[in-house]
């Protein structure tokens, strides 16, 4: 009967936890909305620039969040484009093959997942500083920031893929063997599609992390004002960086309101990316 009691307690606790989370999240949203209200107008994104001309890059946006919005999106997409294939590949290798080097790489992935973003940013930054000795055009840029962010989020798809593969039922592997599939065929045509959900969860986490991190991009290419980057070798603006700089440097309430608005915008952006990710995931289900 103790089990019954534990079950009851767990059910009650899980309700409490869920309600607590809802309440906290709602409070946060409401708080952001209230404080962002003064800045939520037509000028939020483009300031006094003409929206259309700004969007096609003809006009520079000064008082708006548009460049930061574009910068954050680009950064996340480039970082994901690097980290996802790399992470899935690493996860496959770690789950499906075995060698001392691979066992070491598993430990190293864990270590990388524990590497603080500020340490990662610092090493990326110092690397560029040293690299300039041999390659004078090396500079902090969107590309460098995206590479560092990719390293930051690499463990998410790696671990998700590895875990999902390791948990595949043995019958599936037997069936593939019985059908005479090669290992690669089995991995790419049977196992991976089977692991979609696990990998998808990893990708979503990675996406959120790439979108929100400040400490890495602070040192590797984010700037307070530059406009929309024209190539991956340009510096870029980013929403979380804008929020941080404003939080530490604001002069008046209006500026602060824009930081809160930026936070809301960032939330909207991540909601959009997540929905997109889920759509893509859904599409691959036949």
């Amino acid at each position: 009967m103790t089990r019954r009691l534990i079950e009851r307690a767990v059910i009650a606790a899980s309700w409490l936890a869920a309600l607590l989370l809802f309440a906290l999240f709602a409070t946060m949203l409401a708080f952001l909305a209230v404080h962002a209200a003064p800045a939520l107008d037509g000028d939020l994104l483009f300031g006094d620039a003409d929206p259309w001309r700004a969007m096609i890059g003809e006009e520079m946006v000064w008082d708006g969040l548009w460049p930061a919005l574009v910068g954050s999106t680009l950064l996340t997409l480039v970082a994901l484009a690097i980290a996802l294939p790399l992470g899935v590949a690493a996860g496959i290798a770690q789950a499906e093959f075995d060698s001392p080097a691979l066992r070491a790489s598993r430990a190293m992935t864990d270590l990388l997942s524990g590497m603080p973003s500020i340490v990662l940013g610092l090493s990326g930054f110092m690397l560029i500083v040293l690299l300039r000795g041999v390659w004078p055009d090396a500079n902090v840029s969107l590309l460098l920031a995206a590479c560092c962010i990719a390293l930051l989020i690499l463990p998410y798809p790696t671990v998700a893929t590895r875990q999902a593969l390791l948990r595949l039922p043995a019958t599936l592997r037997l069936a593939c063997d019985a059908l005479g599939m090669s290992r690669m065929q089995a991995i790419f045509h049977v196992y991976l599609p089977e692991c979609r959900q696990g990998i998808g969860a990893g990708a979503v986490l990675a996406c959120g992390r790439a979108l929100e991190d400040v400490a890495v991009i602070l040192l590797t290419g984010a700037v307070a004002s530059f406009g929309v980057p024209r190539s991956v070798f340009d510096p870029f603006e980013a929403l979380p960086f804008f929020i941080m700089v404003t939080a530490s440097e604001y002069r008046d309430e209006q500026q602060l309101a824009r930081a809160f608005a930026a936070a809301l915008l960032l939330l909207g952006l991540s909601a959009l990316l997540f929905t997109l990710a889920r759509r893509l995931q859904g599409k691959s289900v036949r």
Partner: peptide
């Protein structure tokens, strides 16, 4: 398992959204 389907889905979405909230926003609030 424990929550009603609608709330469970909602919680899952809230959790996903929370993963995208910058730490600086948590700290700020």
């Amino acid at each position: 398992a424990l929550g009603p389907r609608v709330l469970a889905q909602l919680l899952r979405q809230v959790l996903t959204l929370m993963a995208g909230v910058p730490t600086v926003v948590y700290a700020f609030v």
